[in-house]
Design a protein around this nucleic acid. Structure first.
Lengths: 336, 336
DNA sequence: CTGTTAGCGCGTTCAG
DNA sequence: CTGAACGCGCTAACAG
């Protein structure tokens, strides 16, 4: 127990050890393992026996080294602790797993510097592909990935002119779509509640698009923290002229809804409320939340497939646009 | 563009190439990279220049192979698409990252066979540690990990007599604690809503513990799907004698709460409602959800630290018990 | 069918 | 301070 540095993987049997006890060469053991049909049944069994006896387990690193493959893909997300990213990663992992790839995840906290650092770690552990969130990244990230000859894909965004392939949706259009729903219901005075734009390019795109709405639609923007508390705080006091609230995230919408309920306000009777994301829970709220549905799981599957296809067949990764749509539910109503 | 199998990592510069253009040996390049202080400033700069010129990037696999280390830890969770596991993984990743380890995640869908398969994949990619959820696993999992000499730790459970170290809480005690809160409020007729016990040993433990409660407390158990819909379905019709509902997951509690609201029932006036987990959202609901708080983030940090300490110093992994406690909020009230 | 011979790319002795 | 040599564990080629 006093072995300091070598307490781990002490004297693990190698393929040579197995060969020795089986009375064959290492190459034969390798063959017995990888192409059993090319080995006589007799020796195969001696090898199997020897493997059991020595407790041999193949060294994955050596295998990876010689094949040059790790079957590992890395994903960088702002946080794991948000339903949207979990759903994305869940789909990503499921699909990668189908294709026999592993998923390494790293969280960036929305900090580009952290992102670069973590990307470098992923690269230096041998990921064969890198999936990032959003479009704004340090140039260094692109450079590193390119030098490592590792494909890089951006998600949660569709922007065909970007420097890297994007798999996602058009955030600007989605925001307008959402707003249009409220406008179509007759609302002209709308509060837009959103998270920090400084650290989130998706939010910024959505806000920018809304700012470009026709001037007859009065929009007032409220930036708050991207959590339930933030959503609640944003509605504690607001212009009574506002007849509808558009939250650029369902988390904010839920925070707002619960606070409104606590304040005794009726949704949608007193005010229409709309979210953005369409989390699992949104459809089950009372009232069910009208929201902009984002095809998150699909995005995860597509990203996985794009990377795998590149890795397996060399197919260049193409940007793909997924369509966001309004999920009309009970939290929005025509202006009385 | 017609290179089928070798389109990837084509002719990447090696440490030898760098040495050649720098006019030094590969060993010197290696030193310049890993122990710069042992190289003269002059050569160091020539090496740096040569690296830039060749676009050299170290081969992570070769490095891993010679050092025998991947700095990678694997986590197996039933799903990523649930706030509890995301929070756990978020904390896990954050802490591992601090210690310069990477996190590979695999989802098992609560299927032990899948778990074994995925564990094997993780092992065969070289993870140095394995973190699993819950206590019931195929024996094969234990065997594989042991043979690969990879530490294995179970979470979401504390059970000092288990075959592997456990980092988590006492599910039975926690369930009783939760129930006791309702009992202390005077409730004697309680509906217990829970997810499938067949695929979830934590749930089973909680249910079992509740079944052992004193007989003067009338408990009726309702098993449903572990999602918002399931929570809602479970309350659409129930014995009017029931004065309190204990959900063994906040997701179920939320599903129940929203459905009750839709049914026009008042919580806690008409019925007390209690959850289990304490998700981020729970404190912000209207009414704020009384729930059994589980120290999930702490569990992630502790698991990461235990594995790292083992990997770095050989410190054996000890089971650690984290304490769950009732978070009393507004959704429960004394029996009228 | 099986053994022998070469590496894979890098770190790490050991001499100089 | 630097270079030559060796080894990590395994697979792929080539003989036999």
């Amino acid at each position: 127990m006093s072995q300091r540095s070598e307490f781990r993987r002490k004297g693990r049997a190698t393929i040579i050890d197995v060969g020795r006890v089986a009375g064959v060469s290492d190459a034969t053991v390798s063959r017995a393992l990888n192409t059993p049909e090319k080995v006589s049944k007799a020796t195969r069994q001696r090898v199997e026996h020897a493997i059991a006896e020595t407790g041999y387990v193949p060294n994955p690193l050596a295998k990876a080294m010689v094949s040059g493959r790790t079957f590992t893909v890395g994903a960088l997300v702002p946080t794991l602790d948000h339903a949207i990213f979990s759903r994305f990663l869940n789909a990503l992992e499921t699909e990668l797993s189908h294709q026999s790839y592993n998923l390494v995840v790293a969280v960036t906290d929305g900090d580009n510097a952290v992102e670069v650092k973590k990307a470098e770690k992923l690269l230096s552990m041998g990921v064969e592909g890198l999936i990032v969130t959003g479009l704004s990244h340090n140039a260094e990230l692109l450079a590193r990935a390119q030098r490592a000859q590792v494909p890089l894909v951006a998600t949660s965004y569709f922007e065909p002119t970007a420097a890297l392939p994007t798999i996602g949706y058009d955030n600007e259009r989605a925001a307008v779509l959402a707003c249009d729903h409220l406008v179509a219901l007759g609302h002209r005075n709308i509060a837009v509640i959103h998270g920090p734009v400084a650290t989130n390019d998706r939010t910024r795109s959505r806000v920018d698009a809304l700012r470009a709405m026709p001037p007859d639609i009065k929009l007032q923007f409220i930036e708050t923290s991207l959590d339930y508390r933030g959503g609640g705080n944003a509605v504690t006091s607001w212009d009574p002229a506002v007849t509808a609230i558009l939250c650029l995230s369902d988390v904010l919408a839920m925070g707002a809804l619960f606070k409104l309920q606590a304040m005794g306000k009726q949704v949608p009777a007193d005010v229409s409320l709309m979210g953005f994301d369409d989390m699992d829970v949104s459809a089950f709220l009372t009232p069910p939340l009208t929201t902009l549905h984002l095809p998150i799981a699909q995005m995860g599957r597509d990203a996985a497939q794009a990377v795998c296809r590149y890795l397996e067949e060399g197919t260049p990764i193409q940007s793909v646009e997924l369509t966001a749509r309004v999920a009309v539910r009970g939290s929005t109503a025509p202006l009385a």
